[in-house]
Protein backbone atom coordinates (compact mmCIF):
# COMPACT_ATOMS: atom_id res chain seq x y z
CA UNK A 1 0.00 0.00 0.00
CA UNK A 2 1.36 3.40 -0.85
CA UNK A 3 0.30 6.81 0.36
CA UNK A 4 -0.12 9.85 -1.88
CA UNK A 5 1.12 13.29 -0.98
CA UNK A 6 -2.50 14.32 -0.38
CA UNK A 7 -2.91 11.50 2.20
CA UNK A 8 0.13 12.78 4.06
CA UNK A 9 -1.24 16.32 3.99
CA UNK A 10 -4.53 15.13 5.44
CA UNK A 11 -2.92 13.05 8.21
CA UNK A 12 -0.57 15.89 9.04
CA UNK A 13 -3.48 18.29 9.31
CA UNK A 14 -5.43 15.96 11.60
CA UNK A 15 -2.36 15.59 13.83
CA UNK A 16 -1.68 19.35 13.64
CA UNK A 17 1.82 18.67 12.32
CA UNK A 18 3.47 20.96 9.86
CA UNK A 19 5.11 19.06 7.01
CA UNK A 20 6.72 21.24 4.39
CA UNK A 21 6.24 20.69 0.68
CA UNK A 22 9.84 19.49 0.32
CA UNK A 23 9.29 16.79 2.95
CA UNK A 24 5.99 15.41 1.66
CA UNK A 25 7.43 12.84 -0.74
CA UNK A 26 9.93 11.49 1.77
CA UNK A 27 7.29 11.19 4.50
CA UNK A 28 4.86 9.53 2.10
CA UNK A 29 7.52 7.00 1.20
CA UNK A 30 8.44 6.31 4.87
CA UNK A 31 4.85 5.85 5.91
CA UNK A 32 4.18 3.60 2.92
CA UNK A 33 7.09 1.39 3.96
CA UNK A 34 5.60 1.02 7.44
CA UNK A 35 2.25 0.08 5.93
CA UNK A 36 3.96 -2.44 3.69
CA UNK A 37 5.52 -4.05 6.74
CA UNK A 38 2.10 -4.30 8.32
CA UNK A 39 0.75 -5.77 5.11
CA UNK A 40 3.49 -8.39 5.24
CA UNK A 41 2.56 -9.28 8.81
CA UNK A 42 -1.06 -9.52 7.70
CA UNK A 43 -0.12 -12.64 5.73
CA UNK A 44 0.63 -14.57 8.94
CA UNK A 45 -2.02 -17.16 9.71
CA UNK A 46 -3.95 -15.87 12.74
CA UNK A 47 -6.84 -18.29 12.47
CA UNK A 48 -8.25 -18.89 15.97
CA UNK A 49 -6.01 -16.27 17.61
CA UNK A 50 -7.88 -13.78 19.74
CA UNK A 51 -6.93 -10.18 18.91
CA UNK A 52 -5.09 -8.40 21.73
CA UNK A 53 -5.92 -4.88 22.78
CA UNK A 54 -2.64 -4.53 24.63
CA UNK A 55 0.79 -6.19 24.35
CA UNK A 56 0.72 -7.14 28.04
CA UNK A 57 -1.39 -10.13 28.85
CA UNK A 58 -2.82 -8.51 31.98
CA UNK A 59 -6.10 -7.09 33.21
CA UNK A 60 -6.73 -3.49 34.24
CA UNK A 61 -6.47 -2.80 37.97
CA UNK A 62 -9.24 -0.66 39.38
CA UNK A 63 -8.95 2.31 41.74
CA UNK A 64 -11.22 2.88 44.76
CA UNK A 65 -13.52 5.89 44.28
CA UNK A 66 -11.76 8.28 46.64
CA UNK A 67 -10.68 11.89 46.22
CA UNK A 68 -6.92 11.81 46.70
CA UNK A 69 -5.82 14.90 44.77
CA UNK A 70 -5.29 18.33 46.32
CA UNK A 71 -5.75 21.61 44.54
CA UNK A 72 -2.43 22.44 42.82
CA UNK A 73 -3.73 25.10 40.47
CA UNK A 74 -1.07 27.63 41.36
CA UNK A 75 1.71 25.16 40.66
CA UNK A 76 0.21 24.05 37.34
CA UNK A 77 -0.57 27.57 36.23
CA UNK A 78 2.93 28.79 37.00
CA UNK A 79 4.06 27.14 33.73
CA UNK A 80 1.03 28.22 31.67
CA UNK A 81 1.67 31.03 29.17
CA UNK A 82 -1.54 32.93 30.00
CA UNK A 83 -4.06 32.66 32.84
CA UNK A 84 -6.79 34.86 34.23
CA UNK A 85 -9.27 34.37 37.08
CA UNK A 86 -8.03 30.81 37.45
CA UNK A 87 -8.69 30.02 33.78
CA UNK A 88 -6.10 28.91 31.25
CA UNK A 89 -6.18 31.31 28.30
CA UNK A 90 -5.69 29.96 24.81
CA UNK A 91 -5.93 31.48 21.31
CA UNK A 92 -9.58 32.11 20.60
CA UNK A 93 -11.60 29.20 19.31
CA UNK A 94 -14.88 30.02 17.63
CA UNK A 95 -17.53 27.51 16.81
Amino acid sequence: MSLERSDVEKIAHLARLSVSNDELDAVASDLSNILNLVEQMDQADTEGVEPMAHPLHMVQRLREDRVTEQDQRELFQSIAPFTEDGLYLVPRVIE
Binding site: R63, D65, R66, V67, T68, E69, D71, Q72, R73, F76, Q77, D85, G86, L87, Y88
Partner: peptide, 27 residues
Protein backbone atom coordinates in the same frame (compact mmCIF):
# COMPACT_ATOMS: atom_id res chain seq x y z
CA UNK B 1 -22.23 10.20 40.32
CA UNK B 2 -18.78 9.15 41.51
CA UNK B 3 -16.83 11.18 44.05
CA UNK B 4 -13.63 11.16 42.03
CA UNK B 5 -12.89 11.25 38.31
CA UNK B 6 -12.86 8.26 36.02
CA UNK B 7 -9.06 8.09 35.70
CA UNK B 8 -7.78 10.30 38.53
CA UNK B 9 -8.32 11.05 42.21
CA UNK B 10 -9.53 14.62 41.59
CA UNK B 11 -12.97 15.60 42.90
CA UNK B 12 -15.99 15.74 40.58
CA UNK B 13 -17.95 18.24 42.73
CA UNK B 14 -19.84 20.83 40.68
CA UNK B 15 -19.34 24.56 40.94
CA UNK B 16 -15.84 24.88 42.41
CA UNK B 17 -13.45 27.67 41.45
CA UNK B 18 -11.99 27.11 37.95
CA UNK B 19 -9.21 24.52 37.65
CA UNK B 20 -9.05 23.73 41.37
CA UNK B 21 -10.18 20.18 40.59
CA UNK B 22 -7.98 19.51 37.60
CA UNK B 23 -4.97 17.40 38.56
CA UNK B 24 -1.99 16.41 36.44
CA UNK B 25 -3.84 13.40 34.95
CA UNK B 26 -6.80 15.60 33.94
CA UNK B 27 -4.39 18.17 32.48
Amino acid sequence: ATKSKIFSGASTAFGSAPNTQACNVDL
